[in-house]
């Protein structure tokens, strides 16, 4: 039984990675080799496509994306952790309405928000400005961050909060020294999710940014439009744009898997 399951898991895993593996493989081939179907494994490896991609000045969009994603993730955490803490220390029936209000911001189709938000950006002179994207992404990620943090903070044992209160710890100290360490897996997961959502956001970035504040996905779609027929080059670009998320995932996974194992209560 477990053997069959193991084989199935391996098969599923391979199938799962096949598209990405194909993308990486194609990015390492020369254009003529990349165009063969089915993709050939034996073709010589070359980094020409990467060299050409980096020649096309991809740094400003990559840096824009990095500042938008990191900035909004930090802001989200600063807002969501206290809010979620508030929702979990005081449990009243009405709070479910508060939580539902946070959800409501995820109900309007993104395409419907495009025009009004564009007009706001235009009116406030924030078009093509990274700070506007930071605020926008923060508000887009806040609902899920509050919900997630709340479900994780609800698991922080009451005893240690009480002990902290008895020792005279203030709010900031309690959050930083008591709550944060226990809720670390939740915080890690939440920040990773916010980072990925902001890094990959395309619709708003495409409408609200231009030459100055264009983000990596916007740059990538432009690159696809102009170089779409050159498979290897597009794949190389896609790999480069996806890499920061993987680095973030790798960095977060350590924090993600340490929780009550710290032995906070024992």
């Amino acid at each position: 039984m477990s053997r069959i399951l193991g084989v199935a898991a391996w098969f599923a895993g391979l199938l799962f990675f096949a598209p990405v593996a194909w993308m990486v493989l194609t990015s390492l081939h020369s254009e003529p080799d990349a165009a063969t179907n089915p993709p050939s494994l034996a073709a010589p490896v070359t980094f020409d496509s990467y060299a050409e991609f980096f020649d096309s000045e991809p740094w400003p969009p990559l840096i824009n994306s990095l500042s938008a994603s990191v900035g909004s993730t930090v802001l989200v955490l600063l807002l969501a952790i206290p809010a979620a803490y508030a929702l979990s220390i005081k449990k009243v029936e009405k709070w479910s309405d508060v939580l539902f209000f946070f959800l409501s911001t995820k109900m309007l189709p993104v395409v419907a928000g495009l025009l009004p938000i564009y007009l706001v950006a235009q009116y406030t002179g924030m078009l093509d400005n990274i700070s506007f994207l930071v605020v926008l992404y923060t508000s887009m990620n806040l609902p899920i961050a509050v919900w997630l943090m709340r479900s994780f903070l609800a698991e922080v044992p009451g005893e240690i909060l009480e002990a902290a209160a008895l020792d005279g710890a203030g709010l900031v100290t309690t959050l930083r020294r008591v709550v944060a360490p226990v809720a670390m897996p939740g915080i890690a997961a939440t920040s990773l999710i916010c980072f990925i959502f902001s890094w990959n956001e395309l619709l708003f970035a495409r409408v609200l940014t231009g030459v100055v504040a264009g983000t990596a996905p916007v740059y990538l779609t432009g690159f696809v439009t102009s170089q779409g027929l050159f498979l290897a080059k597009v794949c190389a670009a896609a790999v480069v744009v996806s890499l920061p998320v993987l680095v973030a995932g790798f960095a977060a996974q350590d924090k993600l898997v340490q929780g009550l194992s710290l032995g906070a209560v024992k």
Partner: peptide
């Protein structure tokens, strides 16, 4: 562990614009 955990995130890490194209 680290590699397994990070690599499972790969499909999600690829921007939609690219994965749809893929």
């Amino acid at each position: 562990r680290g590699v397994v955990r990070a690599s499972i995130l790969v499909p999600w890490a690829v921007p939609t614009a690219v994965s749809a194209l893929l």
